[in-house]
């Protein structure tokens, strides 16, 4: 069992991801914007953060940078979940410290598989 933080502003997507993660037996926390997501991350020190890119207040990329700059999160894995599908966007996300990248429309099973792969590293 791992602690997973999901930061996503779309409620439907969030509900689906939460559902899958809970089914897999993880402890799940959620937030709906970048700023609050950072706060929640500091409070729970998750093993995995699933981040939307386009969010109000702070975008996923900025959150990613912040998390990576903080030694507290050295062991935290980051997975970006976004509709941004251009090659250069994926490059930017990975350069910012994301460990994996899933493009919307997404498959929740694939997302779970990737999340578990990251967690078992």
């Amino acid at each position: 069992m791992a602690v997973v933080l999901i930061v996503e502003d779309d409620e439907d997507v969030r509900a689906l991801v939460v559902h899958r993660m809970k089914q897999a037996g993880h402890e799940v926390h959620t937030e709906h914007d970048g700023e609050a997501g950072l706060g929640a991350a500091r409070a729970s020190i998750p093993d995995l953060v699933i981040l939307d890119w386009m969010m109000p207040r702070r975008n996923g990329l900025e959150v990613c940078f912040e998390l990576r700059a903080d030694p507290l999160f050295a062991a935290t894995r980051i997975l970006m979940l976004t509709a941004k599908a251009q090659e250069q966007d994926i490059e930017r996300a990975l350069a910012a410290g994301a460990d994996d990248y899933v493009v919307k429309p997404f498959s929740s099973r694939e997302l779970l598989a990737r999340a578990n792969a990251l967690l078992s590293r």
Binding site: D10, L16, K104, P105, F106, S107, S108, R109, E110
Partner: peptide, 10 residues
């Protein structure tokens, strides 16, 4: 929701 997902979910 269907437009946000693919595969079996969709």
């Amino acid at each position: 929701t269907a437009s946000q997902v693919r595969g079996e979910d969709r």
